[in-house]
Nucleic acid binder design. Structure first.
Length: 409
DNA sequence: TCTGGGGTCCTAGGACCC
DNA sequence: TCTGGGGTCCTAGGACCC
């Protein structure tokens, strides 16, 4: 077998991205413990500044918990436009060093420097240059990780945080992984780490040495992948083009828990409209509609069903969601509602042949136009009553292009 | 005074088909 | 009396990620 040429992958990960941007744009926040949150009533910490992290403030904490560990915490409602704008500009910087880069999330990117690093004095020099440029232009820090694949580049950036530059060279892989806890690896979360611990496997070194058959037996097909990860092997290529979406969904934690059908329906219509509108904007149609419900006690479940034809029509989605709801006997008050569309096809040129449908589509397009121009839900279906403004902070999985560009014009 | 929102991938079981 | 076996499609739920 021919030896696989070693790649050089660089991972750029912004340090406390949303918080850093806020501190940069509002000098009064500089050096202070801040937490970026959403604008909805029941929100959580999306990003904590490093000053806040010192006190134990973490992503996902509710306000009350965060204030308890850090009473002087300053809460800032996030501003999507700032973060997505910055993210787009960052692409410009990356493209100077290689055409092969992937915007993995709003604050993270991978660059494949295998064929270009020699033009810029090597990977380390590129890493330094990227860090300096980002600091000069945006006044924020990032951490750069370099490695022979995405897994190790990502690990290097995690190990280098904050404001670091770490390079895991092929000859350093074994010593780096030897005593590293398995859950430090990208792809091993708390559940798998727990299961591995029960099997006596706590470090990547131990994972890499575990017999394949044994891991396969315990974890199925993922067992092989786990062993490879333990050895620092990862063949995932850089995805320079975003893939077609597999699903489009919106969910929201309600301002207060509800139970009455009359209270539920307006939210479902709003969520259906958000889903339908995003599908239409990006040229997707779907055939599977799902309703997600979370009860007061946090028990969460979903029920799905298929519609006859592929659709991007708000009302088709909404009617299906109502049918699904008909089949559910609610056992408690509802805390969160979600609607999603899957089994997607992406064909912007698909034109419906039926005259009625075409008329309906031009109505939807007209509504979308007004809403794009004047803001969401200026023009809506009669039965929908706007409950409150959107939560406001985008998910970190936001991407600058494609269907994931949620809530951004 | 509690616990966000956007995704992807995988598994397991049942229905159905040849 | 013994009761196939491969494949696809669909649903529900869980683990993981940022």
């Amino acid at each position: 077998m021919a030896a696989v040429a070693s790649r050089i992958i660089l991972c750029v990960d912004m340090d406390a991205f949303f918080a850093s941007v806020e501190q940069k744009t509002n000098p009064q926040l500089k050096g202070k413990p801040i937490g970026v949150i959403g604008s909805a009533k029941r929100t959580v910490i999306t990003t904590a500044s490093y000053e806040a992290r010192k006190y134990g403030v973490k992503t996902g904490m509710n306000i009350w918990e965060a204030k308890k560990v850090c009473p002087q915490l300053i809460l800032v409602i996030g501003n999507n436009e700032k973060y997505t704008h910055t993210c787009r500009e960052l692409s410009e910087i990356y493209s100077q060093f290689t055409p092969d880069f992937e915007i993995y999330s709003v604050d993270e990117a991978f660059l494949d420097l295998t064929t270009t690093h020699h033009l810029f004095g090597g990977p380390e020099s590129i890493g330094k240059s990227i860090k300096q440029t980002i600091q000069n232009i945006f006044g924020i820090n990032c951490t750069v990780g370099i490695g022979p694949n995405i897994l190790l580049a990502k690990l290097a950036s995690d190990l280098g945080k904050p404001d670091g530059l770490q390079w895991i060279k092929p000859e350093d892989v074994e010593s780096t992984l030897k005593d590293l806890p398995v859950n430090e690896l990208w792809g091993i979360g708390s559940k798998i780490a727990e299961k591995l611990a029960l099997l006596g496997i706590r470090t990547c070194g131990e994972l890499g040495r575990a017999p394949s058959g044994f891991l396969r037996n315990k974890f199925g097909i993922y067992g092989e992948a786990l062993k490879a990860m333990g050895m620092g092997i990862c063949n995932r290529p850089i995805q320079t083009e975003p893939e077609d979406a597999k699903s489009i969904g919106h969910s929201m934690t309600l301002p207060k828990d509800i139970w009455e059908r009359k209270e539920i329906e307006p939210y479902l219509l709003m969520l259906s409209e958000k889903v339908g509108r995003r599908a239409r904007r990006h040229g997707y149609m779907g055939r599977t509609v799902a309703l997600v419900i979370r009860y007061t006690d946090f028990e969460t479940f979903s029920k799905q069903g298929m519609v006859l034809d592929f659709t991007d029509d708000t009302h088709v989605i909404y009617e299906k969601v109502l049918k699904i709801l008909d089949g559910i006997k609610l056992k408690d008050k509802i805390r969160l509602l979600g609607v999603s569309l899957s089994t997607l096809i992406c064909d912007p040129n698909q034109i419906p042949l039926i005259e009625e449908e075409r008329k309906r589509n031009s109505l939807l397009q007209a509504m979308d136009y007004v809403n794009d121009k004047y803001g969401e839900f200026k023009l809506t279906w009669g039965s929908y009553i706007m409950q409150e403004k959107d939560a406001g902070v985008i998910s970190p999985s936001w991407k600058p292009s494609g269907v994931k560009s949620v809530q951004v014009k």
